[in-house]
Every structure is written in C-alpha cells, then in structure tokens.
Design a protein around this nucleic acid. Sequence first.
DNA 1: CTGAAAGCGCTTACAG
DNA 2: CTGAAAGCGCTTACAG
Lengths: 331, 331
Amino acid sequence: MVTSRDVARLAGVSQPTVSRALTDHPRVSEATKRKVREAARALGYSTNAIGRALSVGRSNRIGLVVADLENQFYANMIAPLHDELERLGHELVLITESAASAPLPERVAAHGLAGVVLSTTTVDSVQPARLRDRGVPFVYLNRVAPGVRADAVTVDPETGVREIVAEAVRLGHTRIGAIFGPRNTSTGELREQVVREVLDEHGLGLAQRDVLHGPFDFDTGRDGFRTLRERAGGPTLVLCGNDVVALGVLNAAAESGVPVPEHTSVVGFDDLPTSRWALVRLSTIAYDLDEVARESARLVVARLREPDAETAHIVYPTHYVARSTVSAPRT
Amino acid sequence: MVTSRDVARLAGVSQPTVSRALTDHPRVSEATKRKVREAARALGYSTNAIGRALSVGRSNRIGLVVADLENQFYANMIAPLHDELERLGHELVLITESAASAPLPERVAAHGLAGVVLSTTTVDSVQPARLRDRGVPFVYLNRVAPGVRADAVTVDPETGVREIVAEAVRLGHTRIGAIFGPRNTSTGELREQVVREVLDEHGLGLAQRDVLHGPFDFDTGRDGFRTLRERAGGPTLVLCGNDVVALGVLNAAAESGVPVPEHTSVVGFDDLPTSRWALVRLSTIAYDLDEVARESARLVVARLREPDAETAHIVYPTHYVARSTVSAPRT
DNA sequence: CTGAAAGCGCTTACAG
DNA sequence: CTGAAAGCGCTTACAG
C-alpha cells in the first residue's frame, strides 16, 4: 500500500506537508503543492480513508437504516440518496434493522458512521432517543418520531388526497375503502387522518369493514384485496397506503380476474417508476421521490458540519396523478 | 465516545486486555473476560471499527461496483449480497462506476475497502487488471473478463436456452428475433452464442433484421420492440438479453396495443420478482439469483482470508419457466 | 510556508 | 495470563 510517507519521500517533503498539500491547505506554496500532487499521481496514491477517519475523529460514511431491502420503495430511495451523498463527498452504508441485531447506536459506532438516515422509524421506536442520547447525528426520511426532534424530510399528503377524493366524488364513488399503512408510523397515521378528514368534508365515511391496516408491502395489498372482496364485494375504490401496497392489490385483482378499474378502482401513494409502466399505469399520489431522498442526504451532511444548528423539517407537496386504475364505480 | 480505555478503567485492567477479552483471545482468563464484558455493556461500548481497521491494516468493508443503481437487476442483487456479507461480519459499500469518477483501485483505497464485487465488468475493461495489479481482492459477479483470472460466479444459459428453443420449435415459431445484451460483456456474448448454436441445431437461424443489441436496461427493450416491429411486423417470438429488457418490450407492446403473446411472444432471462407478478407473468430463463449474489459474497470473504488460494469459478444452472408471454405464433 | 510532535482507537508481538 | 510499547495512516495545533 502506498502511503503519504512514500509520497513525501518522492516529493522531498515531510509527510504532514503531503497531507496539507493534498487537502489544498492555503498555507502551502503552489510549488510544493504541484510537486506533491505529481508525486501522488506517479505513485497512484490516494488518501487512506481509515487513517483520515481515525485522525479527524469520524468517517465520511452515512448509514441508511432500512427494514427491508427487497421493498421496492427503499430500493428506489437508494440510488438518489447514494448519488447525492457521493456528490457531497460521503459514502452510503446499508444497515438493515432486524430485531436480532445489536442496538443501533452501537452498530453505528461499530461501523464508524458519521451519521444516519432513518427511514423506518415507528412512532414508538426507541432508536431516535438512543441516537440522540449518544450524540449520533441523524435525520428522519419520510417518517418521523414524535418524541425526538431532528432534521426531517417528509411529504404532505393533503393536496394529493384532496385531489383524488374530489375526483372519486365526481365519478360517483360512495363506497370507498382503504388499506392503510401501519398505525405506529407517522406516515401511516398522517395519511389515514388526512383521508378521513377529507372524506368527511365530502360527507363520506369509511365503513369499518372497508378499512385495513398493514405494513407498507406487497403482501399487505395482495391479502388486503382478497379480504376486502369477501366483504360484500368490497368497496368500489380502494386507497392504498403506498404504491407497493397498491401493486399488491393490482396483482391480486389480476389473479382473481377482477377488472381494474371497472370493478374496483385503485389508488397508490409514491409514484414509483414501476407505477408508470404501461402494464401498470397506477393512479397515484405523487411527489418528487428523488428529491426527497436527496434532501435527506443534504440534511445529514449539513448536520455533520453544524451539529447545533436549528433543526429543519422539510415537507414536500403531493399531487394526484390520474392514470388507468380509477374510473366511475361499477353499478 | 466511549473507548476501550474507558472500559479498561472501569474493569480495572489495561486497554490491551480489553481488546483481547472482547475478541475472545484464548489466553485471557474467564474471570477477566467476564469483568471486561460487563464493563463494556455497562458503558454501551462497542469496538470502534476505524481504530481496528487501521490497526489490522484493512477494514471489513466490501464494495459492490454497479453501473446503475436504478436498474432492477442490481436492485435485486443488493439485498441478498448485503445479507450474506453481514452474516459473515462484513459491510456493503455501494460504488457506482461512472466515467467521471476516479480509477477504481484508488477509490477502493480511498474508501478503505477490503475487497470488491465487480458486477459490471465489460470484456474490454481495464478494471480487473488494475485491481489485480494493486492486489485488491475481487470477484466477478454474473460477468467475467477474459484476461484476468479471479473468483467468479456466473450462470450457464445453456439448459434454459435449450428448453425455450425446443418449446418455440414445438409451438411452430420460425421467425425468432432477439434483443441481446452488449457485445462487450461476457454475459451478453455467451447468451448470444448459445442461442445461435441451439437455434442452429434446430435448423433455425436469426435473421439479421430481427437481431438487436443494447445495454441490459428497460429502454433497450422498449426501443428494441418498436424497431423490430417496423421491420415487416417483426419476429413472432423475441428472446431478450435479460428480464429488464423483456419488461421494456412488454411495456412497449402494451403501449402500442400489441397483444402478448398472441402477436409476439417474449422471453426474458433472470426471473426477477417483478416477472412473477400476475400483471406481468413473464416467461423467462430462471436461476437462483439470490444464491448467485450470496455466493459472490462468500467468495470475496474467502479470498480475503486466503489470498493465494486456488481461484474458484462457480456456475449456476438455468431452466426455462413458462408463464404467460409465450404461445404459438400468430398466423 | 514547513517540519517535529502528538494523538485518533485499536491490535499485536514482546516481556514477564 | 496480563501489561508496556509500538505502530497502523492520517490530521492538526505548535514552533519556527
């Protein structure tokens, strides 16, 4: 391995000077910098991240905590998050959260992470408090825990929900159902609350039997659709907690030969790339998913630099995108 | 931050003893180990990965080099790879390969990586040689570069191709087309060669106008389908370089209202989870994708431990999975 | 503008 | 079985 010592020797300077020259320290002469850079290039040297990390007391690595890497939603977050982090000179490390694994703060220490993006926080999670107590910088992505203040980027469902509900009413839907996300997530809670409010404003309610809850995954949608159908044919329109759930619904419908939207209209939330496929054309509540992910990257990195800055909560707007899974109700 | 010094103080031993106790060194008394573990637990201590990495001369971090994180194929590799690596006590770092970025070996050094999984190697790539010259342990995943020997896990298309071709012949297809992967990848090359051979055995050929090449992505399939169609209606069956390409084809067909398989049959390669959706039901050549990813994790880790061991090339078998995108040709 | 020194948190021969 | 010492590759006050 070629180290800064080797470069120093070749350039005829001291090792610390190599360090300064390569980080473009202002009080190093241009001539020296040039010499050092040249030597570095000649040897194919690049700074050892581990040495630097130990020296400055922290790495440039950010952990993304996800529950389920297979989930398309997270899969779609990773690319923009990684890109933005890289642009900012940081690395992405994936951390899966499983009951079996060690407590998060210890894993953060073990991995030598500078900060963390939490994308799977439940309302009752102890993680945020633990991270805060240990002084680990973190940001909430898409979700938030009520007790612990931290930078956050989330999405405001209101506009999107208003738009789809207005559309549903206009089309004549009266029996609307929902497969909401888990009750112990801020995202699930908020979306449900907004849906109920807006429906209420239109004099519509959600019948108990037409409401389901479950994790934001494919199976929730698939099983949910079947359950709903058994209850007197099911609602004529079902609002899903997110796109992955809606995709589960769509596939279950296809399996049972139920035509969408003729028999049942389906609405998602997130507007994943897959939802735009001609094969799918899911009507959904959209927002700038890539930007949301990128923003969370910016927030952690900013927090690293200014640990005591005012906490920021950035909220992205949503809107309804009509595609092919919503029509007038069956009669 | 709590360090091994703090633990040492609390346990009333020296710092090196803490290190030994926690790594379960055989020549530390059980009593001491117990004392140290307890102190560590009390303080919420866990070994600092950076300190350890610097000390032992390398980290436990493995880089996965991908070209395109958005690509579903890679997205599906990440989860099993990550899980297996974690199981083996290693971390996954994502590295995107872009023309703009620094040479790979320098990035590996910069990231302090122990080894690398190469999943995007082209036949003419300089990366493998560079990594080899720098002594960076790496394995090929799914692809291989001819010049440089290294551990590899790949897939043998033969059985799968034989099965689908036999089926196509049985159904009466005579005008078969293909959208192959890039010519400069071993995967693309091999699949094309096998397809040509097997077709040949059946006395069938691939007409020049019915053959396309392109990156293994969605757009290749979408554009490819359109191009093929313009040429006298196109082939009655198209073999795709992989599932992502086939998915592009399927969506382009849906967009243009071309019924699959009635008008055109479509075959993929990889059997991604999405291909199994009721909405999709892609007939494809399948293999154990998760196992392939996991195996590559095992290979790098093994290589770390035994740098001079015999090089291993593990090949997984394929088979054809008939679903809903292949039928008798239109007449 | 540059060098010598100290230190980041660990591991690992070396003594005893 | 355990401690003192050295060192991994860097950065950063401290001198000059």
